[in-house]
């Protein structure tokens, strides 16, 4: 079991936020905290997710999100 910090830039829509959390659910990742803020005059959002789960799941989550047009970038900031 590992802890990850993941940074995601996404469009400002309920659907984008919901789908991100559904992906967290699909990856069976536990949520420790999620912070979401609007950026660029409210057109986009940035999210910082502190999650825990299996070793390879953070990379899976990042790659998974990048399949969908809602997400402009996604990266792992830290893994411990």
């Amino acid at each position: 079991m590992m802890r990850f910090v993941v940074f995601v830039e996404l469009v400002n829509s309920h659907d984008a936020v919901a789908k991100m959390l559904l992906a967290v659910k699909q990856g069976n990742l536990g949520i420790e905290s999620i912070n979401i803020h609007s950026t660029e005059d409210g057109r986009n959002l940035s999210a910082i997710l502190l999650l825990h789960g299996e070793e390879n799941k953070a990379e899976w989550l990042v790659n998974k999100l990048l399949n969908f047009p809602y997400y402009r970038s996604a990266k792992i900031l830290k893994q411990v």
């Binding site: 829509s13 659907d15 789908k19 699909q26 399949n67 969908f68 047009p69 809602y70």
Partner: peptide
């Protein structure tokens, strides 16, 4: 949403 590439 869980099962689609894009919906709006």
């Amino acid at each position: 949403l869980p099962h689609i590439k894009y919906a709006v």
